[in-house]
C-alpha cells in the first residue's frame, strides 16, 4: 500500500518543478511568494506577469513561478523592471527584492522610480539583515539588534536608524501611487496589499510598493517562538503595518 501523501495546495502560478523551494526553514520569503502567487491566480494574469528578482535570498525565486522571470543584480531589479515596462506597457511587471537591494545599494532606483511614478509594482521583503551573505547589518536592522557587523548591537549613534521604506516612498510618491507595509504575520492583509498594488498597476495609476515584514531565523539565530515573536510583535513597533498611500487617499 502506498503511503498517503498530503500535498499542500500550491498556487497555480507556482512552478511545481522548483518545489519544495530553496529558502531556509522558517524563512518568510515562501509566504510572501505564496501571497503573490495567489494574487496572480486570482487576477488571472499569469500570462502577462514579468517577475524580476534581486540578489540576496530573493534571487532564489528565479524559477519560483511559472511566469516569465529575470534575475538581476543587487539593487538593480527596479531599473530592469522599469525598462521592461517602459518598452512594453502591456506587461504586468513586478520587482522583488530584499531590504538591502531596495534601501541601500538600489535606493536611488527605488526613489526615482517612485518619483517618476513608474507604473510597476515593487515588493520588498524586510527581514532586518543581509541574509544571503551571512547576517550583516541591513538598512532595516533594529536598534540594538545584533548582526555579524554589529556584534554588540546596532548603535544608532554610529550607524543611524533603520530605514523606514514605505514612509519614505509615500512621502515622495505622487497621486496614483500605492504604498503599504504588510507582514507575513498577517498573511491575509499582506495578500490584500499585494493585490491592491498589482491592481493599481493594472489600472495604470502608477508606482506601487509593498514592504513585507519577514523572518530570518537562520541569521537571527532564533527558535520558532522567538522568530514569530520578533516578526509579529517587535518589528511592527518600529515598522508600523498599514497602508501609507492609496489613490484617492483612503488608507486602511
Amino acid at each position: 500500500m502506498e503511503a498517503k501523501q498530503i500535498l499542500p495546495k500550491m498556487p497555480k502560478s507556482w512552478n511545481p518543478a522548483s518545489k519544495p523551494h530553496k529558502f531556509c526553514p522558517g524563512c518568510g520569503h515562501g509566504l510572501v511568494l505564496k501571497a503573490l502567487g495567489q494574487v496572480i491566480d486570482e487576477l488571472n494574469i499569469q500570462d502577462r506577469v514579468v517577475f524580476g528578482c534581486d540578489i540576496g535570498c530573493s534571487l532564489l525565486s528565479w524559477d519560483f513561478f511559472n511566469v516569465d522571470t529575470v534575475q538581476t543584480h543587487h539593487g538593480r531589479t527596479t531599473p530592469v523592471i522599469v525598462g521592461i515596462k517602459r518598452a512594453n506597457p502591456e506587461l504586468i511587471t513586478i520587482a522583488y527584492m530584499g531590504d538591502g537591494g531596495g534601501y541601500a545599494i538600489g535606493s536611488q532606483h527605488l526613489v526615482n522610480a517612485a518619483n517618476r511614478n513608474d507604473n510597476i509594482t515593487a515588493i520588498l521583503v524586510n527581514n532586518t539583515v543581509y541574509a544571503m551573505t551571512g547576517g550583516q547589518m541591513a538598512p532595516t536592522t533594529m536598534p540594538d539588534q545584533k548582526t555579524e557587523t554589529t556584534p554588540y548591537g546596532r548603535d544608532i549613534k554610529e550607524t543611524g536608524y533603520p530605514m523606514l521604506g514605505p514612509e519614505m516612498v509615500a512621502a515622495i510618491a505622487h497621486e496614483g501611487a500605492y504604498v503599504a507595509r504588510g507582514s507575513i504575520a498577517k498573511f491575509r492583509q499582506l495578500k490584500t496589499f499585494i493585490k491592491k498594488a498589482i491592481e493599481n498597476q493594472m489600472a495604470g495609476r502608477g508606482f506601487s510598493f509593498v514592504e513585507a515584514l519577514s523572518t530570518c531565523p537562520t541569521n537571527w539565530r532564533t527558535n520558532a517562538e522567538k522568530t514569530w515573536d520578533f516578526v509579529e510583535n517587535i518589528m511592527p513597533q518600529y515598522f508600523p503595518i498599514g497602508e501609507y498611500k492609496v489613490p484617492g487617499g483612503k488608507e486602511e
Binding site: V70, T72, R76, P79, V82, G83, R86, N112
Partner: peptide, 16 residues
Amino acid sequence: EDELSAGFTTIGGVLA
C-alpha cells in the same frame, strides 16, 4: 537616475 539605471533599463527594454 544614473548610468547604472540607464544600462539596466536598456537591458529591460531588450528583454521586452
